[in-house]
Write a protein that binds this DNA or RNA. Structure first.
Lengths: 222, 222
DNA sequence: CAGCGCTTGTCACCGCCCTGTCACCGGCGA
DNA sequence: TCGCCGGTGACAGGGCGGTGACAAGCGCTG
């Protein structure tokens, strides 16, 4: 389990990071809004702990930005008594909050609870029509048989099945699968889709499962 | 519940021993590296409290030695502020630490927590299918026969059997077995698995007990 | 003290698959 | 006709998993 800790105060970073590492988590650190986004895209942590005061953009913005790209559990660190901040954080998609000052033990308990919840939801197979995705084993059950997926294919399907029936824009796919900020890397997506179709035996001209939506993106039939 | 307390200072020994006894624990005492090992083997305590400064070998060595023979909860007593010592203790397999000076009340709380955690892990089924793990003796009963495990193999199996039927990610295994933070140490896991498979006579291509889940990790058949 | 065996970490190598990249094709609208 | 988009094939680098070999550390024993 990998946790990203974002705080501009080096002491806080050290303390919380150390506590998490002791508990057996992998820890990646960032100290600003910008570096946090980059770190997130590179490291793909399983959870995030965000301070609110950050150079380059508030923790609120960061929370919203992360939410745009991922469903990872987010825990916000707020100052005591500021209820407005708290409400705002939860509205922006934070999963939990902690008021400073807090003990490392408390932090650990909260993080653990969040991850457990997230894992429980993760382990639910996501399904759409004849497709059933099992993320843990990178396996796709499709019309009876089982197909082994690569990590990239699994991420693609995860996104598409979550929006089954609706087209998903290529840019959104690029961000979700590669963390790229979109742009010229459509070739990657073309190949990924091509290889996946070949693997499951789907014909682009006459698709049973994965449709192309011209000038928009792709869609799985519901 | 039996606790071993190791300290060369008779006063400390008396104080901590008394506190633990008051709380209802059986206490066995040792005052040196050598006597501690002997006492441990005779008494098989359920937990240990180790001082770092010991005649005959440091508490670190003792911690490592105990770890080589058992998974019992270990609490180390460190001097305040020496973070290097602390890290080293945890890397050697200690479960928790306490900085001197501390109150007997604190000690009790920590010990209680450790034992509770250990019991919780113990009560996890240590058997899956044809595999039955006995942590105390580092033994694996497998399809009738008995196999002697190394400490590392035991930790690996402990984790895998606890999640029998489900794949366990390589990163999680690395953390659980070695406490490593880095991702670059897959080689260790490769070797560990290889040697274990050889020992029990399992074929990676056609596994009876331990399966590889590509790009994810490993899984024991339920 | 020397020697032995067990455990563990490290290096090197192999084969396979995943992935990124280049090149090309056909269809469609400007 | 040009340019863009989507689909397809081919190739190469690198990662991952499996395997063998070697050395260091440690405990045990003669």
């Amino acid at each position: 389990m990998k946790i990203m800790v974002v705080d501009d105060d080096p002491d806080m970073l050290a303390v919380t990071g150390f506590a998490l590492q002791q508990a057996g988590y992998l820890v990646v650190r960032a100290n600003s809004y910008g570096s946090a986004l980059g770190t997130f895209r590179e490291e793909r942590p399983d959870g995030a702990v965000l301070d609110i005061n950050l150079p380059g953009g508030s923790g609120f913005d960061l929370c919203a930005a992360l939410r745009r790209e991922s469903d990872l559990p987010i825990l916000m660190l707020t100052v005591r008594g500021d209820e407005a901040d708290l409400v705002r954080a939860l509205e922006l998609g934070a999963d939990d909050y902690l008021t400073k000052p807090f003990s490392p033990r408390t932090l650990l308990a909260r993080i653990k609870a969040l991850l457990r919840r997230a894992r429980a939801e993760d382990s639910r197979p996501s399904a759409a029509g004849e497709l059933e995705l099992v993320l843990e084993t990178l396996t796709l059950r499709i019309a009876g048989r089982e197909v082994k997926l690569t990590p990239l294919e699994a991420r693609l399907l995860h996104l598409l099945i979550a929006s089954a029936g609706q087209p998903v824009a290529t840019d959104r796919i690029l961000v979700h699968v590669w963390g790229h900020r979109g742009g010229g890397d459509r070739q990657l997506l073309k190949q990924l889709v091509h290889r996946f179709r070949q693997k499951i035996g789907d014909d682009p001209e006459n698709p049973r499962w994965l449709e192309t939506v011209p000038n928009v993106g792709y869609r799985v039939r519901a």
